[in-house]
């Protein structure tokens, strides 16, 4: 294991060297995140387990002789991540994170400066959380036949539902990639896909450029509120499919309803445990009762991230609650 170049570039040399040494000694595994807190032991998450690198380049389960970042080192990370241009990332930092080259994400915590419109900026940054971008190419293979029927003019309106950390965004990204590239179900035809990526998680855009593979026919509006981005994409890009992550806010309902009316396929994700769970929520209840979505994919982390529990077709159900279970398997 080694640190990705965009991460190494923004870390102070002392931390980067010790981390590289520790990761090298640790061998294989998937590096998921890095937590850097001022005057506290630095920790890494590898394959879901937290480890503490030592100042001598070892990885331990307990913080013994830990690598402890200084206040200046934490500040330097932000300076390097912004290319010495705090002002250029100020609006992103208001949301609490920056997207780095490679689609990796840098979350920050510190003292918030508030104003009449809420958080205006952050100062005295004390914690940095680096989450490494993770693509699973092909993880949508098993669910795509439920989204695109053979010979279909367009994919079905689809909702991916699952709890946090169940792999919704990873699955959504591979769905975007495959629909854009062309699927066997559609006779190899690729669709014009538009992504409203409010939190920069689907495409991992850095300076407007997608860092993760979202296919050749994909347009992305990055960092804009979903409702505004969806309206803009429909007006400007004439997409066949619109994809967005984590719908659920009251203002999303109108945008989703408009989209479903205008002949463009919507593929979205939502937090929840199941189709039945969503059916009880005020925002989803009318949509699901109207059978607006033709495919609901339930994810869980039961057998690892990306476990597909069920694929539900609400149209075939006698009621929204009694849905049809189509498949069990693992997406990625």
């Amino acid at each position: 294991m080694r640190l990705a170049d965009p991460i190494r570039r923004i870390l102070p040399r002392r931390l980067a060297d010790a981390l590289d040494l520790a990761l090298d000694k640790a061998g294989s595994g998937r590096l998921q995140s890095l937590r850097i807190r001022r005057d506290k032991p630095l920790s890494v998450t590898i394959d879901g387990t937290e480890r503490f690198p030592t100042d001598t380049g070892e990885l331990r389960r307990e913080p013994l002789r830990p690598l402890v970042p200084t206040a200046a080192e934490v500040e330097d990370i932000l300076v390097a991540a912004s290319q010495g241009s705090y002002y250029a990332v100020e609006s992103e930092l208001r949301r609490g994170y920056l997207t780095l080259p490679g689609g990796h994400r840098l979350g920050v915590a510190g003292e918030a400066v508030t104003g009449p419109d809420g958080i205006e900026s952050l100062k005295h940054i004390t914690s940095v959380h680096l989450r490494f971008a993770h693509e699973v190419i092909g993880c949508a293979d098993k669910v795509l036949p439920y989204i695109v029927s053979p010979g279909a003019v367009r994919p079905w309106h689809t909702l991916v539902v699952g709890p946090p950390g169940s792999g919704k965004t990873t699955l959504l990204r591979d769905i975007v990639r495959q629909l854009s590239l062309g699927t066997p179900q559609a006779g190899g035809r690729g669709f014009q896909v538009a992504v409203a990526d409010e939190r920069s998680e689907i495409a991992g855009c850095y300076q407007g450029q997608a860092q993760l593979d979202v296919g050749p026919r994909t347009d992305v509006i990055d960092g804009a509120p979903k409702a505004a981005a969806i309206a803009m994409l429909i007006r400007s890009m004439s997409p066949e499919v619109v994809v967005t992550d984590e719908i659920g806010a009251p203002e999303d309902a109108a945008a989703v309803a408009d989209l479903l009316r205008c002949g463009v396929t919507l593929i979205a994700s939502a937090h929840g445990t199941s189709f039945e769970d969503l059916s009880r929520r005020p925002m989803f209840k009318p949509l699901l009762e109207a059978r607006a979505f033709q495919c609901v994919i339930e994810l869980s982390g039961r057998r690892g991230v990306g476990t597909v529990e069920r694929v539900v077709d609400p149209r075939r159900a006698t009621g929204a609650v009694a849905a049809t279970a189509y498949a069990r398997g693992r997406a990625g």
Binding site: Q83, G84, S85, S91
Partner: peptide, 12 residues
């Protein structure tokens, strides 16, 4: 450049 484009410093 900073106020309107918000270009990172090297680019600006």
């Amino acid at each position: 450049e900073i106020a309107h484009v918000r270009a990172p410093l090297p680019e600006a």
